[in-house]
């Protein structure tokens, strides 16, 4: 069970920042329609800076652990910094190779983050193709 490295399972079993924010600046939900995994992200922001984060979601260990791992890095980041997080970074966080069939599971967190930030700026959401990038 290489893919299910201990830290992935740990984040899956004990997700960080998985809570409801009282007065979020923005809340946005995304789904991986091919499997039904969901993540809803809430951010509390000030001067284009992330102050607090809370999320909820349902799905496989990869999608949920990745969101938990990503959530640990967001506080204090500016919108621009958060928007510039690349897909490679999520793969680094997971630390194990994720096959093409599970790429969207791994990147659901990033897709949700980017579209939450876009929603905060009243910009249209980006497509999965933009998040995943041309392979």
């Amino acid at each position: 069970m290489d893919l299910y490295a201990e830290n992935i399972l740990d984040h899956y079993r004990h997700p960080r920042h998985k809570s409801v924010l009282k007065n979020p600046t923005v809340t946005h939900k995304e789904e991986n329609v091919s499997c039904g995994d969901t993540v809803e992200l809430s951010l509390s922001m000030k001067d284009a800076k992330i102050l607090e984060i809370g999320w909820s979601g349902e799905g496989c260990a990869i999608s949920q652990a990745a969101m938990s791992m990503l959530s640990e890095e967001l506080i204090g980041k500016t919108t621009d910094e958060a928007l510039s997080i690349a897909t490679d970074h999520i793969h680094e966080l997971l630390g194990v190779p994720v096959g093409p069939r599970r790429t969207k599971c791994a990147l659901l967190c990033l897709h949700t983050l980017k579209n939450t930030l876009r929603a905060a700026k009243n910009e249209p959401v980006q497509s999965w193709t933009e998040t995943v990038g041309e392979q």
């Binding site: 069970m1 290489d2 893919l3 299910y4 499997c35 799905g59 496989c60 260990a61 599971c105």
Partner: peptide
Amino acid sequence: IHPHDLTQILSE
């Protein structure tokens, strides 16, 4: 265990 995780574990 989510079905995707189960399928992946068994696939291995």
